[in-house]
Write a protein that binds this DNA or RNA. Structure first.
Length: 419
RNA sequence: GUGAGCAUAGCUCAAUUGGUUAGAGCACUGGACUGUGGCUCCAGGGGCUGGGGGUUCAAGUCCCCUUGUUCACCCCA
């Protein structure tokens, strides 16, 4: 075995799987454009600080999952583990706040996290994400969730649930956090070992521990909405009202706290039951302080989300994925002269926008037929010596075997074959 | 990083309590049909049974190690 294999947790994507991916990408571009988003492309590598400062030093992502290394110049560099940090860096670096507000961007591309692969989780995975800068109002939250809704509908993906939550802002989160700490401190002895650490480092994450014992302890937990300040409470209520107006169904899930430190107020996930343990297909939220923390204009509120491509593609497996566009005509030349004629006919047809394939002149007709069939061609155009002598070609429709003749150089007659 | 399962042809899988030459379907190539595909029939190529070591008269099968993979935990898209 001297063959090379892919690295652990990365994958080649090709036909027919690639058509599902293209459908998702094409549809997302279309829908996002309708909502006023324009594409943004940022590098896959950044200074490591771009990620550690935004995502949070104590999160799992930067703590143990980043591909980090020094380049030949000794610069500390990381492969991006997610998209938002780079977009924010780009926004600040290029003073994009000077564009008409709010600014809307979407991106697509590969992300990297050093994790143990499992269903729906890879070391190189792909996201389509969108970000809006410069609007604090819940209208943007609702609009974004509506955009997601439209995308899912267009892709024929049902069976998903939109879950929303609010985790407060700089003003009210400390109160809430203190209440959580107080609540669990009494029960610390009964918490799992992970949660004992969380109690000190990141108490919010006590909320979504899956350990049964911890889940039981959560009974009687102070309710998050009770601790939101008036502004955050108002924001959250307004969002829910707008979602109702737009007839977007959702459930409130006070346990959504997200694993990245930059989130404020609205957080949300689109979940499914079809992906094993990885139920989040799309996730995102507000990050009203991050732009300022990156040195951008103060009080630049922002919100964004990311779609997991691999997970999305898996959901589409039974759904209406676009198939490879069929080759409409297959040219079957018999002999060198016929091959040359076929080749130039093919070029003419391609210039007219018709997808055609040209076989090789030294194949038997039987081989040609088999190949045409395998490529799903609608018609085979047979050109042998007899045809050349008569100045015409023989066409055969593969679906029913009907045959006819066409003038050898009359492009219109080939075009006419195609419905 | 932790735990469990699985590695046999390109793919999906067989192979009695350990037993002699490791099989089948699909796919591929050729033929039946020398200028006509799909369906059918026939034939052919393909394997160090993931790798290494051990037990045994005998190992695809049992044991150990290793690598890969799958699923789950942590966490996340």
């Amino acid at each position: 075995m001297s063959k090379y294999n892919t690295l652990k947790g990365v994958a080649d994507i090709y036909t027919p799987e690639i058509y599902r991916w293209q459908t998702i990408e094409d549809t997302a571009r279309e829908v996002f454009t309708l909502y006023g988003f324009s594409e943004i492309r940022t590098p896959i590598i950044e200074y490591t600080e771009v990620f550690t400062r935004s995502i949070g030093q104590s999160t799992d992502i930067v703590d143990k999952e980043m591909y980090t290394f020094n380049d030949r110049g000794g610069r500390g560099i990381s492969l991006r583990p997610e998209g938002t940090a780079s977009v924010v860096r780009c926004y600040v670096q290029n003073n994009l706040h000077t564009l008409p507000a709010p600014q809307r961007f979407y991106y697509t591309g590969a992300m990297f996290r050093y994790e143990r692969p499992q269903k729906g989780r890879f070391r190189q995975f792909h996201q389509i994400g969108a970000e809006v800068f410069g609007s604090e109002g819940p209208k943007v939250d609702a609009e974004m969730l509506s955009m997601i809704n439209v995308l899912l509908k267009r892709l024929n993906i049902n069976d998903t649930t939109l879950e929303i939550n609010s985790i407060g802002c700089r003003e009210c989160r400390p109160n809430f956090r203190a209440a959580i700490v107080a609540f669990f401190s009494e029960k610390e002895a009964h918490l799992c070992t992970d949660c004992k650490v969380r109690l000190k480092n990141n108490p919010l994450r006590l909320l979504d521990c899956k350990n049964e014992a911890c889940a039981t302890l959560r009974g009687g937990l102070p309710s998050i909405p009770d601790y939101l300040c008036d502004n955050c409470r108002g924001h959250h209520q307004r969002l829910k009202d707008l979602l109702d107006t737009l007839k977007i169904s959702f459930v409130e899930n006070p346990m959504i706290v997200r694993g990245l430190d930059y989130y404020t107020r609205t957080t949300f996930e689109v979940t499914t039951q079809h992906l094993g343990a990885q139920k989040a297909v799309i996730a995102g939220g507000r990050y009203d302080n991050l732009v300022q923390e990156f040195g951008g204009p103060p009080a630049t509120a922002a919100i964004g989300f990311a779609i997991g491509m691999e997970r999305m593609a898996e959901l589409m497996e039974d759904s209406s994925a676009r198939c490879q566009p069929p080759t409409r005509l297959y040219f079957a030349p018999l002999g060198k002269e016929a091959e040359a004629i076929s080749l130039s006919l093919c070029e003419s047809l391609r210039l007219r926008g018709i997808g055609v394939l040209c076989g090789e002149g030294d194949l038997s007709l039987k081989r040609h037929m088999k190949i045409a069939d395998r490529f799903n061609a609608a018609f085979v155009i047979i050109i042998g010596q007899e045809e050349i002598d008569r100045g015409e070609t023989l066409w055969r429709r593969l679906s029913d075997g009907q045959q006819g003749i066409a003038g050898i150089t009359r492009i219109e007659e080939y075009l006419a074959l195609i419905p």
